[in-house]
């Protein structure tokens, strides 16, 4: 293309510049940015911690349960955690507004707590995790899932075994 055509085209079309930062920026739906965590859905398998290539995800046992921390200053936004998460508790949102001043550097964390609960059956203290139910046949009903959830891992196994026999 000769430069005069390009001149004419650019002048005719006007600037190709996006309005951002003086207006909203376009954000694709599938953009991989800030990690979000939903403790309600977490199964507690810690697979995301295991596959995270940057070591940005940490689970810690605390008196109140198990905490999830994803450090956005370390995360490389590869989406591996979301891809391998069996219950889709870890998700990657398209919120890319991550720029921050140095003072807030250590506040760039996605935090979540999987609380402890008391097992309704045996009274033991256990994590309130979402039960892994995808491979069970016949599929569990909603009441069954909530009943399962209220139990500790041992009693869950017992519950499922008794279900199979019935």
């Amino acid at each position: 293309m000769n430069f005069l055509t390009l001149f004419a085209r650019n002048l005719w079309h006007g600037p190709y510049t996006d309005v951002f930062p003086f207006g909203p920026a376009t954000t694709p739906e599938h953009l991989r940015a800030r990690i979000t965590f939903d403790p309600k859905q977490c199964e507690g398998c810690r697979l995301c911690e295991k596959v995270c290539p940057a070591g940005a995800i940490r689970f810690t046992r605390t008196p109140g349960g198990m905490t999830f921390d994803c450090w956005h200053a370390t995360c490389v936004f590869c989406g591996t955690c979301e891809f391998y998460c069996p219950t889709k508790a870890v998700k990657q949102s398209n919120d890319w507004h991550l720029a921050h001043e140095q003072g807030e550097k250590y506040a760039q964390v996605e935090h979540g707590l999987i609380p402890n609960q008391i097992c309704v059956e045996c009274g033991a203290k256990a994590l309130d995790t979402s039960p892994a139910v995808s491979h069970i046949k016949p599929p569990l009903s909603e009441t069954e899932v909530s009943e399962l959830r209220a139990r500790c891992p041992k009693c869950r196994n017992k519950y499922l075994r008794s279900r199979k026999t019935s």
Binding site: K50, V51, C52, P53, A54, V76, C78, T80, Y84
Partner: peptide
């Protein structure tokens, strides 16, 4: 790193 992590690395 594990094989899975190496894909990203």
């Amino acid at each position: 790193r594990t094989m899975t992590q190496n894909v990203v690395l």
